[in-house]
Amino acid sequence: MTLIDKLCYTSKLRYTNAGEKVFFSLASLCFCIISRSVLVAVTVFFTASWLTIRKGGISPLYYVKLMRIPCAFLMISTIAILVNISRHPLNAFSIPFGSWYITGSWHGIHQGIQLILTALACVSCLYFLSLSTPLTDIIAVLECWHIPWLIIELMLLIYRFIFLLLEIASSISCSQHSRLGNKNFPTSVKSYALLASSLFILSIRRAGNIYDAMEARCYDGRIHVLKEQHPARQKEILFLILFEIFLFFLTIFHTDILELWR
């Protein structure tokens, strides 16, 4: 079981209605993507983070640890927007490099900040959902929304095989470490290449074994999971409706609000 699953099953929001949590995450994520507004992104990020940490009881240290992964990718990906190589300096900053300039514009910086905040807000919505709702509850919600069963089953199988790959990779890596397979850089490169090839072969073999086990247990093309019913509370529904209405108005009038602040 991964850290996310352990935190999910110990969350205080574990037994909150799953439909509410799925709707909150997806609706807030859609508002972030549609609006591309800094105000909407900041509002969604702090609200989702507050619900995850304060209401869900997740440790802030674990939450920051999980957020470092997307932050690292975002910082690398936004360098192309913030920094340009040009013969002419731009208005934000410029560093001469021969006849060229390593430079950037205020428009590019604004776009980069907007992209980072929007992406972090979307990630916080997904973390809120994954750190408070088990996959079986999400599947139950998708069934109620009449999502095609093929998509749901693919989600379940992919989720299961993530753990399968992690288990095989951990066993191979432990074996390599015990044989000093990472004592220096060339040995480490060779070990990782062997791990990748072995992982591919062993995962196919284990997948075949799992499918045989499923057929031995009367697998008929659908995976059935136990469902738990947690009724929605009026207070939670009211908060959800008011928050999404607030995001809707922010999405429409965010430019006017920024002009008023200026």
Score class of each variant (00 low, 15 high):
F246L: 12
L166S: 12
A196T: 11
R233M: 04
T2N: 15
I102W: 01
N17T: 01
V42P: 04
C30S: 11
D212C: 10
E244W: 05
Y62E: 14
S188K: 09
S11P: 05
S175H: 02
C122F: 13
L157S: 13
L238Y: 11
S124N: 03
K235R: 15
E228Q: 14
V64K: 07
L194C: 06
I158M: 10
S197A: 08
T2R: 06
V225R: 04
R87C: 10
H110F: 08
F243N: 00
V42I: 15
T52F: 01
F97D: 02
G98C: 01
F24Q: 10
L61C: 09
M214V: 06
Y63E: 10
I79S: 13
V141G: 03
L150N: 15
P231T: 01
I81L: 13
L240G: 09
S37E: 00
Y159A: 10
L129N: 04
L74F: 04
S170M: 13
P70I: 03
H146M: 13
D5Y: 09
H177M: 14
G221T: 01
F239K: 08
E143T: 12
G104A: 05
S197N: 09
C218Y: 08
W50P: 08
I252M: 02
S49P: 09
F24Y: 08
T2L: 12
L150S: 15
W100L: 15
Y159P: 09
A48H: 04
T10S: 06
C218Q: 09
L126R: 04
N17R: 06
S191T: 10
L39A: 09
L194D: 14
L120T: 09
L90P: 10
L135T: 13
F45G: 01
S171M: 11
I76M: 11
K6V: 05
I81T: 15
Y101M: 06
K235P: 01
I237H: 08
L258T: 08
R222T: 15
Y211T: 14
I241R: 03
Y219P: 06
K12V: 01
V22A: 12
R36V: 12
Y9L: 14
L129P: 01
I241N: 03
L164D: 01
L194W: 11
T43W: 09
K65R: 15
R14S: 05
F239I: 10
L3T: 05
R54S: 13
R205S: 14
F239V: 07
A140R: 04
I85T: 11
R233L: 11
I34N: 00
S25G: 11
K21P: 06
S105I: 00
L131F: 03
L165G: 05
A193K: 09
I4D: 07
R262N: 14
G104Y: 02
